[in-house]
Design a protein around this nucleic acid. Structure first.
Lengths: 190, 190
DNA sequence: ACCTGCGGAGAACGAGCGTTCTCCGTAGTG
DNA sequence: CACTACGGAGAACGCTCGTTCTCCGCAGGT
């Protein structure tokens, strides 16, 4: 097994374990065992647990945003449909068996200010998600795409927390309903 | 020092330490030391850390909702003003020096599924907050107060996460702006 | 004054875990 | 074959922390 494969296997194991059981609750050795990699290799690739966690978050960020974007693209070209498709995807995500909330919000709550590395990864992810929504909003015919983007972001983030804590899968539908109202209000009258 | 005072001092110390540094990062002994209470007393009042944390969350829930309600009451009688006042209060809260996000969202991310006791305390708080917003929404002249309440809840929860992670105090203003739009759209035309 | 029991201070215990070290087999090279 | 370097397996170390235990002083009753 070469370094690249070891790294892949570690990140896959890390994502499964850290997301389902939490970061503090999963030991380095758990990840190592599930990945079938030796301690030596692990510390060669990631010099500390902090680095491993940050790498897990970065990998998850790419996969997660990829899944959102794929669903949005499948919704077609209409800017309104594309914005609303985000909430459809959230609904699908919330309904997954292993849904345990937003990995990044959870990581923030868990390590928050203790680790600059992890905090940075979390902020990076949230910024990128927000930027993505802002791009979608800019394609919508409105005079204030930034305001619209902010509102959509807040609804999406709120839906994630409500769905995670309240285990209410309808959170996505409520958010979509509110988003539709906001879109109607923001639509440029022409 | 009697039991009641020991309990008070422990809960005050617990809130300060757990909220500012996180639950896992603060040891039982830290709380005990700051409260000036003996181990014996502590374990007599709270048979485990889990119980102490749950009690801290319950105490914070009461204080936190009390602060929101006080600010809403100060905003007067108009149902729309009262709903919007929630976001004004969030803005004040976000700007506080020691703001570190929503204690309950953080606790959920930190202990999530590991502790039924703590999970229950978190869910209780979020339910009560949601119920409170629903009460405010029911006073508003609209045909669908439940839909309005859901949307307001999502905006508020979203603002908390965005403010915590992105350290953007303007989150409350954006949420208020969106809420105002939703209120206008929901207002019963008469 | 003596006994009794409560409670304070803090040491002790045991478990978990991040990190490092040791031992050993093996593959590659002359 | 001899030597070396690498890396796997997992033991060892050191630390933290939740929880319990020990020791001791003291207040109150007889």
């Amino acid at each position: 097994m070469d370094l690249a494969e070891a790294s892949d296997r570690l990140l896959v194991a890390a994502e499964r374990l850290y997301y389902s059981r939490g970061i503090a609750a999963v030991g380095i050795d758990d990840v190592r065992a599930e990945a079938g990699v030796s301690m030596r290799r692990l510390y060669q690739l990631f010099p500390s647990k902090e680095h491993l966690v940050a790498a897990y978050l970065d990998a998850r960020d790419v996969r997660w945003r990829g899944r959102v974007a794929a669903h949005v693209d499948a919704a077609g070209d209409d800017p309104g449909d594309r914005l609303l498709a985000v909430f459809d995807w959230l609904g699908l995500w919330f309904a997954e068996d292993d849904f345990r909330g937003c990995a990044f919000i959870n990581a923030f709550g868990e390590i928050g200010g203790e680790s600059p590395l992890i905090l940075a990864a979390v902020q990076r992810h949230k910024d990128l998600f927000r930027d993505y929504l802002a791009d979608l909003a800019r394609a919508f015919p409105t005079d204030s795409p930034d305001v619209l983007a902010s509102a959509i972001t807040l609804l999406a983030e709120g839906a994630m927390t409500v769905a995670a804590i309240g285990t209410d899968p309808a959170a996505a539908e409520h958010a979509k309903l509110a988003a539709r109202t906001l879109l109607d209000a923001a639509r440029r009258r022409s």
